[in-house]
């Protein structure tokens, strides 16, 4: 059974309340259509289960298959420097159909980032290393495609709908 390596830390982007009892981690690619399809369902899971679940996202950009996946991951991490990771994460998936080189600045402006800082951070070695280290953690954790989900540190064998179903059943 594949497990999450390394476990979540303060370097991760986590949406959680203190009462959360189930930890979900997604490895995703902003250009991957399956991740785009999973995005609204993850939102629905978060709405349905509220405080019971925590949700974290790690980057797993398939650069050869998706030319904008890596720059998109950099944009999300650069937004995180200004405390707006999730705003950028959502904006990227909401605009997945028109991902292109020139979209990142536009999205950064929409969510109210300091643009100059955003541009600089998007190109920094530190941000690049964050995305690379997320990718490596995915490889080590047995990610075999995107999206891949981990529930309480163990690879979940199924898609987002299976995940939703499993959570519903365990809540009953």
């Amino acid at each position: 059974m594949s497990t999450l390596k390394p476990s979540l830390s303060d370097k991760d982007h986590i949406q959680a309340s203190e009462s959360a009892t189930v930890e979900i981690v997604e490895f995703g690619d902003y250009e991957c259509p399956y991740c785009g399809d999973a995005y609204p369902i993850v939102k629905e899971i978060q709405e349905t289960f509220g405080d019971q679940i925590s949700f974290a996202f790690r980057n797993f950009p398939l650069q050869e298959a998706h030319p904008f996946a890596f720059p998109a991951a950099l944009a999300a991490e650069a937004a995180a420097v200004q405390g707006k990771f999730w705003e950028m994460h959502d904006a990227l998936y909401d605009n997945q159909h028109r991902l292109a080189e020139d979209i990142f600045t536009e999205l950064a402006e929409t969510i109210g980032l300091d643009l100059e800082k955003f541009e600089k951070d998007s190109q920094s070695e530190e941000i690049k290393q964050k995305v690379d280290s997320d990718f490596e953690s995915g490889v080590r954790s047995g990610v075999n495609g995107t999206p891949s989900f981990y529930v309480d540190g163990t690879k979940f064998d199924g898609g987002v709908l299976d995940l939703y179903q499993m959570l519903k059943e365990s809540a009953e």
Binding site: S2, V139, R140, S141, G142, V143, N144, G145
Partner: peptide, 9 residues
């Protein structure tokens, strides 16, 4: 099933 790459590494 796609076996991933963790075993290889």
């Amino acid at each position: 099933v796609n076996p991933g790459a963790d075993g290889i590494l």
